[in-house]
């Protein structure tokens, strides 16, 4: 099983090694000290940027989907109204199923799909193994990975970031500096994940979506997460922590952009956007449609009240005279 995973991961490790080495070469060419932690640290950040940039098309696709979400709001609200106040698991499941069926029927889907994360995780493992293997490669106990030869490995391994080596972990750290740098990175990592999650929950969710047991569970987990990071983070080399932190910053910025420009319907962020647009005197997207819909609904309601008026014979109508038109029918003129 171990061998199977090794051979499965090797091509990815190789790719990770080449991207990192390529960035390192580039940074050295523009004048950074090849043995510095800055050059190697920036190479890790470069790897993140390459990976996340490769996924921008997916991000754009999601933005387009969220635009289309605005158009199916009436149908979505119908489903939400139907299940309003029903919090038993069977109702929630039925509601999710109906919502998903609607997405498919309308040809839009706000979710990004599971494949990207599955594609990303081997790269994370690949990086973990490259950084974890640096010491072994520099000592000759491990085979070199592509461009990361024994010499390159020992240079990268001894590169220091604020005095801590990139391959150092909190567990087994020899210097206080290493401990401080790892703790700092773990705190930053937890803070970015927490902020991203909190931003999503407090700003980009309609109030109706927040008032159910799942949202409450989600909220609890949001607070437990930093503890999980602290426990697992102490086992990761500084390079991996740096990678993780950079990815988090990217996700946070991306989400900030989406929430600001294309907030979820009915959320606090949408209200804020509409207020901003109103202040600048710009049209509010979807407002015209909403007004038209409301007008159509009012018309429909009026139609119903009109039908309720009993038909009158010519004689009776004449008798009642002008001014006695039923009050309800008058409302329809508005």
């Amino acid at each position: 099983m171990g061998d199977f995973f090794n051979s499965l991961l090797y091509p990815i490790e190789l790719l990770v090694a080449w991207i990192m080495y390529g960035f390192h070469q580039a940074f050295t060419t523009i004048g950074l000290d090849p043995a510095s932690g800055l050059a190697w640290g920036l190479s890790i950040i470069g790897l993140v940027i390459v990976m996340r940039a490769a996924m921008i098309p997916l991000f754009v696709k999601q933005i387009n989907a969220s635009r289309k979400m605005q158009m199916i709001q009436p149908e979505l609200q119908k489903i939400q109204k139907k299940y309003k106040g029903k919090t038993d698991p069977e109702s929630r499941q039925a509601m999710t199923q109906e919502t998903m069926a609607l997405y498919r029927q309308e040809g839009t889907n706000p979710f990004s799909s599971c494949l990207p994360i599955l594609v990303q995780s081997p790269f994370f493992f690949g990086l973990f193994r490259v950084l974890n293997g640096l010491q072994g490669i520099s000592e000759g106990t491990k085979d070199p990975i592509g461009p990361i030869t024994k010499a390159v490995a020992s240079q990268a391994e001894s590169a220091t970031l604020f005095g801590a080596q990139l391959s150092d972990k909190f567990i087994g750290a020899e210097t206080t500096t290493t401990k401080i740098v790892t703790i700092l990175l773990i705190v930053l990592m937890s803070a970015t994940t927490f902020t991203t999650q909190r931003q999503l929950m407090t700003k980009n969710m309609p109030a109706s979506a927040l008032d159910n047991p799942f949202a409450k569970q989600q909220k609890l987990i949001m607070y437990v997460m930093p503890v999980v990071f602290a426990v697992s983070g102490v086992n990761f080399p500084i390079g991996v922590l740096l990678y993780w932190f950079t990815t988090n910053v990217w996700s946070m910025t991306q989400q900030f952009y989406v929430i600001r420009r294309m907030p979820a319907p009915g959320s606090a962020a949408e209200k804020a956007l509409h207020e901003r647009l109103a202040k600048r005197g710009k049209p509010i997207p979807g407002e015209a449609e909403r007004k038209a819909r409301e007008a159509a609904e009012a018309e429909e309601a009026a139609e119903r009240t009109r039908q309720r008026v009993q038909p009158k014979g010519k004689k009776r109508a004449k008798k009642s005279g002008p001014g006695s038109t039923p009050a309800k029918a008058k409302q329809t003129d508005n």
Partner: peptide, 10 residues
């Protein structure tokens, strides 16, 4: 729970 909902299916 640490990640946003991603799946396109139910």
């Amino acid at each position: 729970p640490m990640r946003p909902a991603t799946c396109r299916y139910y």
